[in-house]
């Protein structure tokens, strides 16, 4: 047993096979190819798990009910739905009138809400289910900042949104003005009016098939 210590067992050299032999090239290629396929299949669940819960929460009811009885005309309330800020406004007659002003149309990118940024029952001049209550997802379509609400004042009774990041402007129905970078109107979530003072956000009675994931851009 002593010769082990003096001469390591790896010292006898192997009769090496000839390099460049072609007999088994096809077999080798197939084996390596199958191994790569297996590695890709194995990688799939790991990479897929990086999507997190994004693909699985769609089937669940994530609607929220909001009591707006304390909201006064001209005010807005901010709630959270799916982690997004959602603006709920109670519009004054002056605000509604400003939305129908004749000169407004040319200054807006999409005055008739032709681009899918809202459910069907909000594809109208006031972009909401009922004219007096407006609901918008408060995320600027430029680069995602939250626009701030300018409450109607004695100087400007119409009210508007302006984004603090890059100056995009929206009217009170969330329609974007042409002279600013944001490309689309503010998104409107699916909304059902449960009563005059009670809004359900996340379900649309007028457009039940609507999915917020299908809109042009959040």
């Amino acid at each position: 047993m002593t010769q082990d210590a003096d001469s390591p067992p790896s010292s006898p050299s192997c009769p090496l096979p000839e390099r460049g032999a072609r007999r088994r090239d096809v077999l080798s290629t197939v084996v390596v190819g199958a191994g790569c396929l297996g590695a890709c299949a194995l990688a799939y669940p790991f990479l897929d798990s990086l999507n997190g819960t994004a693909n699985t929460s769609l089937g669940e009811d994530d609607s929220i009910d909001v009591d707006i009885s304390s909201l006064r005309a001209g005010q807005q309330l901010v709630v959270t739905w799916r982690g997004w800020p959602v603006f709920i406004q109670k519009r004054t007659p002056e605000m509604l009138a400003s939305l129908r002003a004749s000169d407004l149309g040319q200054r807006l990118r999409d005055p008739d809400s032709k681009i899918l940024q809202q459910p069907k029952d909000a594809t109208n001049w006031h972009r909401s289910v009922v004219p007096e209550i407006g609901v918008l997802i408060g995320i600027c379509t430029h680069l995602g900042c939250v626009p701030s609400y300018a409450t109607p004042s004695t100087n400007d009774k119409s009210g508007k949104y302006s984004c603090p990041c890059h100056g995009s402007q929206f009217d009170v129905a969330g329609r974007v003005y042409k002279e600013a970078p944001a490309p689309y109107n503010l998104p409107v979530p699916p909304v059902t009016m449960m009563s005059a003072t009670h809004v359900r956000i996340g379900q649309s009675k007028g457009d039940p098939g609507f999915s917020i994931a299908s809109i042009q851009q959040i």
Binding site: Q3, D4, P8, P9, S10, P12, S13, C14, P15, L16, P17
Partner: peptide, 22 residues
């Protein structure tokens, strides 16, 4: 393992090139 080499079912250490394969 790579210093001492693998053991084998006989427990006899390889000595010649006939005893080993790559």
């Amino acid at each position: 393992l790579h210093v001492v080499g693998s053991n084998n079912p006989t427990g006899v250490e390889p000595e010649t090139s006939d005893d080993v394969v790559p």
